[in-house]
Amino acid sequence: MTARIGVVTFPGSLDDRDTQRAIRLAGAEPVALWHKDKDLKQVDAVVLPGGFSYGDYLRAGAISRFSPVMGTVIEQAKAGLPVLGICNGFQVLTEAHLLPGAMLGNDHLHFICRDQKLRVENAETAWTADYSEGQEIFIPLKNMDGRYVADEYTLDKLEAEGRVAFRYLDVNPNGSLRDIAGITNEAGNVVGLMPHPEHATEPLIGTGRTDGLPFFTSILKKLVTA
């Protein structure tokens, strides 16, 4: 038996197919979920993929956050359902207040697309257990609204509780406070990050490395051994 991992498609999602492919490569079964459907089809975990859902109108992720599917995702995430938000998915998670802080436009005002070095700061979440703490990985980053912000109190709290999951190394590509690339909730089931692990799962494409694959093997192991 393998795990079934849902991937939500919003109007304007771009990376839902790549995410499904990454899940399949890791050995799990991807399940397509539709933004208008409240039903999560009994999946064991959910990924909110990258893209520009609802054209980023109002604020990135602000309208998707109120879609029918998100009502169920929010409810079940609070009950422990593993949820990963990548790029736009991360923005949706902050707008839904499943993760603290908010995402704003890159400080240099340009879209950015580059291979980005990250340090894994927390290898104990549902989505990062196949990494080791302090591991340096190289995965693509592509975004307009990638500047992570939160107030000082929240940032200190995240640091103290080990909830900064990923940090940018070498360069801070978007002005994110404290070089934060990704964070986790307190329970470790909800993780969001700006860079795209699903684009680094096969040697033939992306960075030429498979540094993103452990996201998907981590969750698979957790679900299968649970």
Partner: peptide, 14 residues
């Protein structure tokens, strides 16, 4: 409006 402590690069560019 963005809170006063939040950087506003668009406003700065203007």
């Amino acid at each position: 409006m963005l809170k006063p402590e939040i950087l506003d690069p668009q406003g700065q560019a203007v």
